[in-house]
Design a protein around this nucleic acid. Structure first.
Lengths: 217, 217, 217, 217
DNA sequence: AATGAATGAGCTTTCATTCAT
DNA sequence: TATGAATGAAAGCTCATTCAT
């Protein structure tokens, strides 16, 4: 099948990546053998190696794809609204997406990428650069909120952004372990925490509204 | 009628686990071979198999040890103080401990256990039961705070406990990736978030104290 | 009804063989992959297989080409002069040619063909028929020398021809290992040995001439 | 089978080497797979890798063993006799040994080592150091002969030693190709050539003796 | 209780060859 | 004719595990 289009090649590559991701989600990077991927992709070993130079290359490519998808998601969130709602929207975008059953596979792969990053500089680079941009963005929004008075001045924007990222990571993890987790509820609790960053005086109104609903469970 | 004392056996077992943990931290569960562990422990393969039935058994044992250590830590935190300070103390105990360089190895192993849990029911069981107890404890303290008025009624204690656990997990992860991370600052930001859970009226005083210091960075 | 001329085909074939020989000289028959040859020739795998039915076919073709070239060289040496000078000329023709840097590649390929012949009847046939003709020719010249009195009667022409061939082979080998080898000097020493085949009485004159120069090193 | 003697280990190693040599002689280094060697040795792949770190390591070890054996052979030849007989003895020792059917396998392996040396620095080193010592020894004996008058002054000892080595190499090759070769006759012809190095005057007597037998074939 | 040589299934990767285009 | 993506058998090698000593 010679002289095929670039689109065909890209599609083939994506096809392999998807097959590999399914295998990795199911069995882990190390248990999933190339034979599994070969079978899942319906190809031959040689075909795989035409698109990727090694198994690790596939892992790194998956990390990259994931990273790219998150970057798109990140940039898609509006910046127009107030700082606190902006961050909350970000949280909903990221966390909410994870709740979708279709993402189940990705959550499992993501957790593995975290651990793989500890061994593979290539994966580490992808994973860390995937963390840095959200960190900067959230910190910037928090600082904007401090300037326009919607966020208390005593908040450490940089460190709080890290905490927010940690919440996201922890959710990915807990959901990977417990697919039935109630993400909506988790997200609401996270957003409630964020609202505690508002200056003391400004919290009254929203607090009262919420009080009406009452605590759950 | 054992030829050697139980203490000797326990010591041997612990010795192997420590050697294995060093190997796992250094190379990951899958890259670390039994030969590496054998070398690190200064023993023979046969000796290892006298104490553990398989490599996975070693991994599970490490997870258990970790779990037991955390349980001790958890139970060591006082319940006497008010709810919010109690949770904050818990946060400091767990998060602060992670900052110690000596724990660096453990952080790396922990992240790997998370991903290993996805494949191994045994590890999963240990890891999840290690999460459940803190979850219950934190939720209970939050509810106690709601009863005594130090925590707002609109807070979802159960979900917030999960968010708190997520913050802990995210910190473990970020520190594993970036050993130089400023944990103190991270912990302060996390505690600040928790304080936002206080009822609107009660926050004025502490907020003003903090305002004096100003935000960092 | 060929679409392209026979000359074009032959040229293509030769082009591939040259590319293959360069690869073989550089990496050996077994390390050199068809992909290497494809790249070196600037063609596609399919194109190669249009001219050769297998990798081994290329090897055999290279051996044949080499053989043909040597046959030409062999027939080009004059038979007119006396027997001993005739053999010496042959030696000079063969050995001297090897000294040329351009032949370096061929020496490496030749040594590999020798070893390949042990496994491949096709290569063996080519290699041995390439040895037989020189063997017969040299033996014939030695016998002619015995008839005209320039070579001692006690010389075993057939066996001596083999020894002469061995000298040639050994030189190819030593030069393949050590490209800087002083071939001229080697050839002189070999010719000097041949002169020892002259009947005792006839050696005086040439011996004295040489004595003047003295031994080297 | 733990804690075995060093002798057992050495024997095991030798056993593997012999099995490998048989495979290599039969199929060549590249065609002979580890599985072949495993089967021939009656062991498992893992067992082989306990003694050798790679297939190439086995090849190099075989070259070394061969080299060591030749060194012993070389040193075993007397130096007491005159120079020319000394060299002739050397020739007989080396060449004669090759004629033995038991050495057939070794000849085939040797030819392959020559070609392997072109690709493997390790093998090259072994092969070349195996050539250097005989070269020096033969050259020294030739020079001794020149000093005591048994070898003509016009002989280039160094280059002639190389020619002698070439004769040896050529014989190995020709015999590998043609196991039925009459080595005795080849050796006699080679020795006859060496005798031509005697000063002109001294050759009369031996020449006449030989004349009686006459040329063969 | 401890040793460590041995096992062997199974890993990732290669590469001569094919054939739809 | 030529292309080059695809094949798939088989390569070298690893390593968790066993068991005779």
């Amino acid at each position: 099948m010679p002289r095929v289009s670039a689109a065909y090649l890209a599609e083939r590559r994506a096809h392999i990546l998807e097959a590999a991701a399914r295998c990795f989600a199911r069995e882990g990077f190390h248990r999933a053998t190339l034979q599994h991927i070969v079978r899942e992709a319906g190809l031959s070993p040689g075909a795989i190696y035409r698109y990727f130079s090694s198994k690790e290359d596939i892992v790194a490519a998956i990390a990259s794809e994931r990273h790219a998808a998150e970057r798109v998601l990140l940039r898609g969130t509006a910046t127009e609204r107030g700082a606190l709602p902006g961050v909350a929207e970000l949280a909903r975008a990221f966390l909410g997406r994870l709740g979708r059953p279709a993402e189940r596979e990705w959550r499992r792969v993501t957790v593995q990428l975290w651990s793989e990053a500890l061994r593979s500089p290539r994966v580490m680079e992808v994973v860390r650069s995937g963390l840095d941009e959200p960190l900067r963005l959230v910190a910037a929004r928090l600082r904007a909120g401090q300037r326009d008075g919607t966020i208390a001045r005593d908040v450490d924007a940089t460190a709080t952004a890290r905490v927010a990222a940690a919440v996201f990571e922890g959710l990915v993890l807990q959901q990977a372990w417990e697919p039935g987790l109630d993400v909506e509820r988790f997200v609401r609790a996270a957003v409630r925490l964020l609202e505690g960053l508002a200056p003391a005086g400004r919290r009254r109104a929203s607090a009262r509204k919420r009080q009406a609903r009452g605590a759950q469970e």
